[in-house]
Design a binder for these strands. Sequence first.
RNA 1: GGGCGAUUAGCUCAGUGGUAGAGCACUACCUCGACACGGUAGUGGUCACUGGUUCGAAUCCAGUAUCGCCCACCA
Length: 816
Amino acid sequence: MKGKKSEDIGRDEFLKRAWTWKEQSGGKIVSQLKRIGYSVDWSRERFTLDQKLNDAVVEAFNILYKKNLIYRGEYLVNWCPASQSAVSDLEVEMQEVNGYLWHFKYPLLSKSGEQLLDKYLEVATTRPETLLGDTAVAVNPDDDRYKKYIGAKVKVPFVDREIPVIADSHVDKEFGTGCVKVTPAHDPNDFAIGKRHNLKQINVMNKDGTLNINAGKFQNLDRYEARKKIIKELENLGLLTKIEEYKHTVPYSDRGKVPIEPLLSTQWFLKMDDISQGCLEEIDSKKPEFIPQRWEKVYKDWLENINDWCISRQLWWGHQIPAWYVLDEFQDSIEQNTPFVVARNEEDALIQANKKFGFNIKLVRDKDVLDTWFSSGLWPFSTLGWPNNNDPDFKKWYPNSVLVTGFDIIFFWVARMTMMGNTFTNNIPFKDVYIHGLVRDENNKKMSKSAGNGIDPILLIDKYGSDALRFALIREVAGAGQDIRLDFDRKKDTSSTVEASRNFANKLWNATKFVLLNKTSNDNYSFNESDLNSLELCDKWILSKLHQVNTNVATLLKEYKLGESAKLLYEFSWNDFCDWYVEFAKQRFNNKENKNRQTSEKVLIKVLNDILVMIHPFMPHITEELWHVLQLKPEETLLSLQKWPTQENKFVDIKLDKSFQQLFEIIRLIRNLRAELGLKPSEKVPVYLISDNGDLIDFLKILVDDIQTLTKSSEVLIYETNAVDKTEFAKSFSGIIRDLEVYLPFQDYVNIDALQERLTKDLQKVNSELENLNKRLSNKNFIDKAPKEIVDECRFKLKEGTTQMERINKKLELLN
RNA sequence: GGGCGAUUAGCUCAGUGGUAGAGCACUACCUCGACACGGUAGUGGUCACUGGUUCGAAUCCAGUAUCGCCCACCA
């Protein structure tokens, strides 16, 4: 095991060796060291600890120590025998294993003396080897079976220790035999019982997981070998009564991947009660505010049930604990010594004084280091110059605005930062905590290094580009912190979600190409008075749309709705701008006599510019590039530094939006009718638009050329209802969009069978819809209780549906 | 054992009281001067299940199932 304490190679040597491991560990060592403030010194080929960060850590330790929040004590800690270090509760992972529950008997002694009775108490355990450290047997005080034995003694086999039978309400009468062997030095539960009953703590294990001298004849055996041997010998003694198969959870070390051993040892602890209490008070007033909100409960629950934090680690990397011990010439162990903690930069003075006065004492610094999360918890302010509260960075940027992170790190990091921040700066270090989802693999499993189910982002970046990957992930995070299941095809290294984003990037690229091809001047895109007067309807429409998208995206971003923002921009760019506006613009550019060409250009550039600026945070590279060629900006002028585009309110025109919406529906209907007739784009036929809505007629007349081109019609004829004789359209397909009728006369049609089939299907659909509407409208309750608008809408739909049905019937008639 | 989230088109997901949407995939047509990584028109769904509230439920409530995650000292 790398960095194993027992090798005792020394801190310097470790860092030297770590340098040689940095490659074979795949960067793991480097990232771990960097995270706690080591930097890479390439010239000296070693890692060095950032002095400023180290000073901050020492300062923090001192403050906490002086407030009596840090203490050193002998407690049960989660001991990882592989890395030979204590680990915190959070680094323990529970794993379900198929194990056994062994039942065996402890011989009872008579109450008066040492007389061995012919009676036994039966206990059950999953870890028989710990019996060597037993100091009591506990029963429930209300258990009638065992009441009479409370106060008696039993004899522990092998070590021949006489231990008392005690009563403790923790014991469950129903489970196992109802008798629990109590091993205060090797089980957290038993430790608590031991405290309550003042039991001796007998440690039977060494730090590497082998048994120690207290284990008697089992000394030096590994914990699992000892288990086997003990079971065998218990059986030989006739004390083993039952072996039950038993599924239970065993704590494993996250770090060493071996079962944790609860071990009695001397460690440093941080008292959490007061600190967490402070944060609990703050969270009541939304400090910090969690987005999505549901994580607040998770954070709160954890703070409410927190235990003291074991902050010492027996590792070589990290910030060494700034505590010193005085040893006289005969001592070489610090275990039993009282430490004293000194402030930063005082160590030297201490050593000097010691020398100067010729004290014949040894000063030894604690060898342990701090849990990496101790220094990470200081990160929001230690990186801004703290403990110097007058540092300009600290003054300007603290508290931070938002922390973006995954939920897996709420306890490790977020809570530690809020607690440290609250303690040292009287401030929660950030206003908002945005918790994003995690990427899952195609089997819905969390991606992790250890499971090996990760997706190498480089594969996707090589194939689609980093902008595409970034945009795809943002687009998918829509459901506020919902996990992302990437549709990654492992065999082909493809993902259709990322591919769609790549296509979008390509669309932006080509839209910009179109604009550049048609650009005639290098003027900027700001409008003057004459431009405003020569804006056409479609210009006004796209500017109105742009304004709305702009404000909506700004609002969504403020609410951290990143996915929705991305989707909105995607739709606006592709559907409104590329599909419709660019097509309108083509018309204007193709018309050589167009006097407003300059204005059209300006609108086109303005809209594209704003699209690029708004999409920039989502697709930084391509937008930066396109923006530069569009605006002819020098390399040093960065899009990243541009302000969010502003729009003029006067461009918003909801009525115009609605008119265009109807226009699009009309165009789609014409295309649809042409498709039904099987007309090829080259086959041009006239189309008749008929309405008694004067405003609509005026509107359509202005855009008549656009309708003609976009529907590939030979002619678009617009009439008022009473000005036309509908019998002329006897042989025509028709449709209706609100108050406008569309007629498409024709000579021939193709694909009669297919069309007939489809029309019949349409008819069925409309019929069932009408049936539904009729049912609702004939329901008295509905008429009475539903809002008027809904009822009216129903009536309108019924009318529309009836006309639709007539038209389909007519079409079918014509086909026969 | 406790808690949280998910379940909607073949796939990945939006939609949170008025009768269902997007992208990909699929079908047909289209190389038309930005783009085939494209355009146009389509096909495709008992909104996991069972009850309840309501004139009306994918949407609100209760329960069930499946999947996933987090927390937890039953020896």
